[in-house]
């Protein structure tokens, strides 16, 4: 499981200090897909970056057992003037994995064809996320942090990923961040809602979505 203990995060902006996470405590059990819902600008990406240790919190800590992926998004981590093959090799090297295996797995799973040896800058958003997901699947993480990117790409390919994650759900979990409740409904077993610096975890997905639609109407009002 992943446990967030007393996490605080603030940013200093020209308009003053903004509190993004206010003493957040939460537990994400293993083997469950957790959706984190939040309105735009509520700090979802910051939260997922803190869970993935890509950014330090001002105080508090993240305790986890198992390997956590980097935050998977549209571009995160990849250099656009290198090819998919070169980027995959880089990921394999920094994780100390077998370069050849990662390269082969990614090439087959991403279905990029000859684009596999073309620099990423020529890719569409859908191709990029296909690549990002394939590399991370090759790395066999225990937790996959996903930042919005599931919605890109064609439906057939989305289904392929969903199945791949499902197949691993005994050993791996997904933590998915989105502002879109459809995405969460389709992919998650439980949800947490980030609002006003607080993170509320709901075991019941329906209840979470109900509260989220309340938040949305409150904002619209």
């Amino acid at each position: 499981m992943i446990e967030l203990i007393n996490i605080n995060k603030r940013y200093r902006t020209s308009a003053g200090t903004k509190v993004v996470l206010n003493n957040v405590n939460a537990t994400f059990p293993k083997g469950k897909s957790v959706g984190i819902l939040g309105l735009n600008g509520s700090g979802k990406s910051t939260l997922i970056r803190i869970i993935g240790d890509a950014e330090p919190p001002n105080s508090g800590r993240v305790v986890s057992q198992g390997k956590i992926s980097w935050p998977l998004g549209y571009t995160g981590g990849f250099q656009s003037n290198l090819t998919a093959r070169e980027n995959a090799r880089f990921v394999a090297r920094i994780y100390g994995a077998n370069t050849q295996y990662i390269e082969e797995f990614t090439r087959e799973f991403a279905e990029l064809g000859e684009y596999f040896d073309v620099p990423l800058r020529a890719y569409s958003a859908g191709m990029r996320s296909r690549f990002a997901f394939s590399v991370s699947l090759a790395c066999n993480f225990d937790y996959y942090l996903v930042d919005e990117a599931l919605e890109t790409g064609d439906a057939r390919y989305r289904e392929k990923f969903r199945l791949a994650f499902q197949e691993r759900s005994a050993s791996a979990s997904v933590i998915l961040v989105s502002h879109n409740e459809q995405t969460i409904r389709r992919n998650c077993d439980m949800a947490a809602i980030l609002h006003d610096g607080n993170l509320d975890v709901y075991d019941d997905l329906k209840e979470a979505l109900k509260f989220y639609s309340y938040l949305q109407t409150r904002k619209a009002a």
């Binding site: 880089f90 090297r93 920094i94």
Partner: peptide
């Protein structure tokens, strides 16, 4: 330490590619 050596090695190969690859 071994992680750091691995990362720096990967970064050097990557820098070489980005600078001289194309």
């Amino acid at each position: 330490l071994s992680t750091q050596v691995r990362v720096i090695h990967a970064l050097i190969l990557r820098e070489t590619k980005t600078r001289y690859g194309q």
